[in-house]
């Protein structure tokens, strides 16, 4: 966790430092803004992504998925309200978490398709430049190598935030329009927090795919490795944990201490997977009724009033998950940094 905060501090200091003080030896002329190489690269990357077909296709898929999930959510909410089954507190948040069963919820879509955006934006970040011969030309300009991968990461992350925030706000707007039930400020804040968590989650997959793009010279290999990990974590990982769980579960007659320690072990294993962390964090943020993410004994629950948690408490509950995801991203970034820093840059090799 320390590493993560140190990384963040350094990162932002660097960003602000570079933006303001790009080249001290040149006096800035009026009207001409002189960006540092880092921001020039970020701009270029951002533009490249926006122009690319890949991005258009991704946006298409994700928008369709969102419309589908909104439809499912709205029908579920309307049916629920009519039959008086739905808890009307935090009704607005159910736009994101409810479904009539025909399609997954918005949150599920984000947790499933988010990695795909990350991988799609990052898998060819470095190896395409290498194979097209632009890498050696670029790196013979006065620019730090870490700036290069950081610019790739930042540009893609910026794009991801723009996409996720616009989708999230779009869902809110549509929800407002369709169910006609205005959100409270707390609900808006909760949705914004959820979007931030989603950006961090996709950022993890982005930095993972950047590692692959540095390690593998072929874009196909790098894309496949990314997708393999994505499928592993979103499909197989929970199955494997399930198997381990069954194999090592203590007998029903075992003491409560043993039961709890087993449960905690399984939880820890599950939490290695970023998608599990993401689902924990989002469920805390979007369902204020979630009071704990671990096991609670009857003793602990006694005397608790079954009411929703305030926003600050929900954030507190999901904070470790968020930090874990940031730390995982930072680790990926550190690995790509180490891999790339001392690599030899030959043209088209």
């Amino acid at each position: 966790m320390n590493a993560a905060t140190a990384f963040n501090n350094g990162f932002w200091k660097k960003l602000s430092g570079r933006l303001i003080n790009s080249r001290p030896d040149q006096t800035p002329e009026s009207g001409s803004r002189n960006y540092s190489p880092f921001w020039v690269l970020v701009q270029k990357e951002f533009g490249d992504h926006l122009r690319s077909w890949r991005f258009t296709i991704l946006i298409g898929i994700i928008t369709l998925a969102c419309i589908g999930s909104i439809y499912a959510a709205v029908t579920a909410i309307q049916a629920g309200v009519k039959s008086q089954q739905t808890d009307t507190s935090f009704l607005f948040l159910q736009m994101f978490t409810a479904s009539d069963g025909s399609l997954p919820t918005f949150v599920t879509f984000v947790s499933f398709l988010g990695p795909l955006i990350g991988i799609a934006l990052g898998f060819d970040a470095v190896n395409t430049e290498r194979s097209k011969g632009t890498l050696s030309r670029l790196l013979s300009q006065p620019l730090y190598r870490d700036d290069f991968i950081l610019a790739k990461f930042t540009a893609s992350l910026l794009l991801i935030s723009v996409v996720l925030f616009s989708l999230g706000l779009l869902v809110m707007g549509l929800g407002l329009f369709v169910i006609g039930y205005p959100p409270t400020p707390e609900e808006v804040l909760r949705v914004l927090c959820f979007l931030v968590v989603a950006v961090v989650y996709v950022g993890f997959w982005l930095s993972l795919s950047i590692i692959f793009s540095i390690r593998f010279r072929q874009t196909a290999t790098s894309a496949l490795s990314g997708i393999a990990l994505w499928i592993f974590f979103s499909v197989f990982y929970s199955m494997i944990i399930g198997l381990i769980d069954k194999a090592t579960a203590p007998a029903d007659s075992a003491g409560i201490g043993e039961q709890i320690s087993h449960f905690n072990w399984m939880l820890l294993l599950n939490r290695i997977s970023p998608s599990y962390l993401f689902s924990e964090a989002t469920s805390t943020l979007l369902m204020p009724g979630v009071r704990s993410l671990g096991p609670l004994t009857t003793e602990q629950v006694v005397g608790a009033i079954a009411s929703p948690l305030p926003l600050t408490q929900s954030i507190l509950l999901s904070w470790p998950q968020l930090i874990c995801m940031i730390a995982e991203t930072a680790i990926c970034f550190a690995i790509s940094y180490v891999l790339f820093m001392r690599q030899e840059i030959r043209s088209r090799a």
Partner: peptide, 23 residues
């Protein structure tokens, strides 16, 4: 030597120039 193929010659040159801190 490799260039960004979907950009124009001018764009490619401008990128290099700006990376070198030329306004």
């Amino acid at each position: 030597v490799g260039f960004y193929e979907d950009r124009t010659a001018l764009d490619n040159l401008l990128l290099t120039a700006r990376l070198n801190g030329i306004p």
